[in-house]
Amino acid sequence: MIRFTHASVTYPGGVAALKDLSLDIAEGEFVVVVGLSGAGKSTLIRTVNGLVPLSGGSVEVGSRTVGDLNRSRLRALRADVGMIFQHYNLVNRTTVLNNVLMGRLNRVPGWRSMLGWWGRDEVERAMRALEVVEIVEKAYVRAANLSGGQQQRVGIARALAQEPTVLLADEPVASLDPPTSHTVMRYLHRANRELGITTLVNLHFLDLARQYADRIVGLRAGAVVFDGPASAVDEKVFERIYGRSLTADDVLEAEASL
């Protein structure tokens, strides 16, 4: 479903974020990427929908090679790939429904979206996406009036409204408290299991990763240092990824008890 072939990214200024990375993700998999901040996790995820262009190698999503697409085809690809962000990236000043409808932008004629004339069908799809994350009663509330956990659920609904085949989540729980983190992870898991969406998540907390992932990919300095089932991750693997032993900062539950 997603295939990285010798992918590398060098940012202007010479910082190499990804180095000759090759990775294969199958359809329907729930993959969690773990690693220190600065290991290249965010870059990795953003190359899948072309928000960050590759400097070398290639990324394929399904049958499409991201780097070869022209602008409108790239937009069509992005419409098939939902994305969830650490800071939710909602428009605070507008309603939850309008935020979710942003997920439909590529599916309606441009002029109609400019005028804000959403058809009954589009609104229905947005409502359903909100129902998946069980927050439909807030549809006409301003996003600013929601709690962090609720905002992230709206973020998930926006991605689901795209009816994507791939879901990307960039540190989706890093700004949330532990119970809310679990709620959000459960919704992502449900989207993967019930809707069959291939899901790629960046996480900082190892215990969360182990709990929800089918497969864990460890990233260190832009290269894959571990790739295997969640059950195979132990203390030694951890040291390989993080370059040090496990501390309380690396697990969610420990942080909760602080």
Partner: peptide, 15 residues
């Protein structure tokens, strides 16, 4: 499961 979910959603109340 998807069909079941759809069924559940159809009966849901919209604000």
């Amino acid at each position: 499961t998807r069909r079941a979910a759809d069924e559940r959603l159809r009966r849901a109340v919209r604000p």
